[in-house]
Design a protein around this nucleic acid. Sequence first.
DNA 1: TTAAAAAGTAAGTGCTTACTAACTTTCAAG
DNA 2: CTTGAAAGTTAGTAAGCACTTACTTTTTAA
Lengths: 203, 203
Amino acid sequence: MTGDERRDQILHVAIKLFSQYGFRGTTTKKIAEEAGVSEAMVFRHFASKSELYHAILDYKACESGNAMPFAWVSEAIKNKNDFEVFYQIILNALNRHQQDPEFMRLLMHSALEGHELADMFINESIVPTYEVLSFYISQRQRDGMFRNLNPKLIVRAFVGMMIHHSINTTLWDKNGRILKITNEEAARGFTEILLNGIKKNTD
Amino acid sequence: MTGDERRDQILHVAIKLFSQYGFRGTTTKKIAEEAGVSEAMVFRHFASKSELYHAILDYKACESGNAMPFAWVSEAIKNKNDFEVFYQIILNALNRHQQDPEFMRLLMHSALEGHELADMFINESIVPTYEVLSFYISQRQRDGMFRNLNPKLIVRAFVGMMIHHSINTTLWDKNGRILKITNEEAARGFTEILLNGIKKNTD
DNA sequence: TTAAAAAGTAAGTGCTTACTAACTTTCAAG
DNA sequence: CTTGAAAGTTAGTAAGCACTTACTTTTTAA
């Protein structure tokens, strides 16, 4: 195996283990074992355990960060298609989290252990969501379409439904013991509840 | 200091450290240091580190478990006072989590590390919430007051707003950089959104 | 007053950890 | 072929871990 291939393989093993056991809970020995090499090889590719963690940051930043947030709903935002705006954002998030459940765990470990991944995610994903959505909501309030609730509170309710459902389906209730539905159904249901909850009663 | 006093003190130090650094991330040496005793004293009171963890379980179970879930909203449920039912449950949860932010962290560490505290919490707190509320919701749907959405999905939306807001205020957005409101305002806002979101449009 | 029980400690044990030095194997270019 | 760099290993190191043993000090009750 070439150097780059091996480096990549070790990185992926590390992502898997860090997401399962956290940074502190993962040993370099275990990483080496799972990668099928000696521990010394891990340290040939990554000077230290925490450099390995930072390599994961870079990798994850490249993988998801360049997704140009909300470009794909800008059309719906422009057309003021309320349902489409919220439905697409939820559905996209649920699908992404389901495809990459490791990332959710990695994120939570990082948040609890106080590493940078959590900050990175908040600044690059959560904060923009709050900004874009609360701007859209206050615009629709000025249009007289939404009731005058605190826009940030509405976004928190929205993000809450979304994240909590993701965490449930990928972490605690994997087999759907409490609730088993498709992402489309969930996205539709949450969007309906939210929109009816904040719309002015004009119909 | 008497034996019981010392035991209690060590227990509380352990709760604080486990909630901060997780089970694996907390050393018995650190616990002893913070308690101002030698490490041997920790092992005199608790045979092992994991017995110490289980003592915390018992302690937390006694502290919160006997709270007789939903006794205090049974009146509102009987009277079918929708607002009061949801408002009281959210407000109570937000206040409890704010008073004891350690518990949220302990819970999340436990969920990620696969310890029993998370299961305990889910079975004794989350599952009953789902049962009581989805029963109430389907009853109100039969009354023709709520729209026919999946009751469990509604509860998930509800719990999502609640838990996510708690986690935000106690973990990530402590100083209210993203959103700063009182628990009463949050509870009122979430309840309004949810109820308007699921009510039949008869007004 | 005294003896024994309880509270507390110092100094370890053997194992695991992140990390390293010194060595061997593989393999493609000259 | 041969040679030299890259891929790989073995066998460590010092520090840190949960946990123990053998000891000293303090408190309490007869």
